[in-house]
Every structure is written in C-alpha cells, then in structure tokens.
Nucleic acid binder design. Sequence first.
DNA 1: ACACGGACCTGAAGGC
DNA 2: TGCCTTCAGGTCCGTG
Length: 301
Amino acid sequence: MPELPEVETVRLGLAPILEGAVFARVEQRRADLRFPLPERFGTRLEGRRVEKLERRAKYLVATLDDGQLLAMHLGMSGRFLIGGLVKGANGNAAELHRLGEFIHETGGGDKHDHIIFEMSNLAVIRYNDVRRFGYMALIEAGGLDAHPHFRDLGIEPLDPGMDAAYLASKAGGRIQSLKGFLLDQHVIAGLGNIYVCEALFRASLSPLKPAGILATKTGTPSAAAKRLTPAIRSVIEDAIAAGGSSLRDYRKTDGSLGYFQHSFAVYGREGEPCQRAGCRGTVARLPQNGRSTFYCDRCQK
DNA sequence: ACACGGACCTGAAGGC
DNA sequence: TGCCTTCAGGTCCGTG
C-alpha cells in the first residue's frame, strides 16, 4: 500500500485526466471493498464533473461540481490505471498510456478491476485492488472534516506545523514505541511502515525507544524531536520526488515504476551492512505492532 | 485516553 | 507436485 508519497504520485498522474472531465459511465464490478460502496454510487457520480483532485493523508479526495466529495483510499494493494482515449490539444483523440503489460488485459479487464470510470474525455480509469482493503466514500459538501475517516487525522508531515514542538506535545508521557507512535495516523497522517523505518534511520533513533523521549520533563522538544522532524520531512520529500516506491504491486497510473525503493537505507535490507558512514552495524528486522521494523541497532539509539 | 492484538483479503514465496 | 506457513506500502474494532 501506498503511503503518502505513493498516493501523491497517483494524484499527480490522475489529476490532469480527471480534473475538468465528467463521469460518463461508472461501472462497479464488485461493491465489497473494505467498506461497501455507497448506495447508488455510480448514479451519484454519473454526469458530475470533477473540479479538483486533492490529497489528505493517504486519501485522494475529488471535489465534484455539485459539492460532493469522492474520497478514495488505496488500502494495501489498490491502484489506478489509466487507459482509453483522450482528446489531444489539436482536438484529435490520442491513445493514452496503453503501455507494457497492461495492454493485454484491457479487453475484459483483470479480475481485480473493481470500479471503472469512463470519462467524458474518453479516458478509462480502472481501480484495481487485489486485497480489497481500499475503499471509496461519497461525502456531502463541506462534510470532510467531520467525516469519521478524516475527523481524527493528525497533521500532514509536510505541514510547517509538523515541528519538534508538535511532536513533543503529542509524545509527552507516552510509553508506546517510537515506531508505533509514528505509525499512528492521529499523530502524523500519511506515514506508513516504510517511511517510519526510513525516518527513524535518518534521525538515528531506535524504533524501540518510548515516544516519550521526544519531550523533556517540562514538555519542551528534546534533541531527539529536533532530529526527527527534518528526518520525516526529508524522507517524504525525497520519496515524492522519486515518484514513490514500487515494491510488489504499486505502480504509477501509467504503469511505470517509482524508484525510491532504490534509496531505502534500512527497509527490506535485513542482514545488509548499515549504510551510515563509519557505522559497522548490520540492519536487523524485528516484529513491532505486527509489522516488520528494519533498523540498525548499532547507530539508532 | 492509551496500547495491543486480531480481523479483513489475496497471492507470492519458501520449507518440507 | 502439493500442502502449509509466513509475509506484504493499512486501519478498524474490541479488549484490557
């Protein structure tokens, strides 16, 4: 699943196709995603124009011309693939992104294509999700901040307010591990297993330490908090610039791959030497919160 | 309020 | 070949 950088990459691929286009036909092949699709999902979308496509945490949020919001979450394995035809600048229909391995499956589609958007610009957008942990919701105008899935989300990692003082204020007194703390979407919204591991490596902090070390006794930010904030910001910025990370099934909307996975310092590198200059440690893996944590137990203190 | 484990679902990979 | 276990970019819900 896509974490924030992958979702942002998907947004960048989808926005130029969706924005300004009208849902001409919505085909729903199965409604049992993580949560059932809303009643009359297709009917409520058909004829509506997409005003803009934004991202909040790991959600894509499309604003429609009647004010409704279409919120989309990719879960672990969700992806959008763009095919079909779009009108080029000269008015002629041009074939779009019919690339590589996706060509052969466009006929009847793949069995994990659950929702298909046929747009007025002749683009065909398929939502494919093997594990079906993703979902879509329709939210009435202005209702985003009160919606149960959005109401309690924490700050965006790239928000200027995500600073050492913010982390200290959230972490004070917590005994939970730093790993669990950073995975908590109520604290920072958008980080996942990969980028938490990478951020803790960049900050030279052990994922096992209690989150409380981010605050001093008086509640001011500790040195650890001051190292952690730029580490989080830089890893997210670097990953977005690389088009996200492509591991198993994540791809950009045109079927091409992100390349941040080549920049992982610790994620997926169990047993490899630590990359930090001067450190002779080895990357270890251990389960935390039911997920694999990768870190160097020599230099991450 | 906080912290943890299980649940949801499919498929790939590795061990025997 | 097959069967069984483990693991995978998430997060909701029930339990202490």
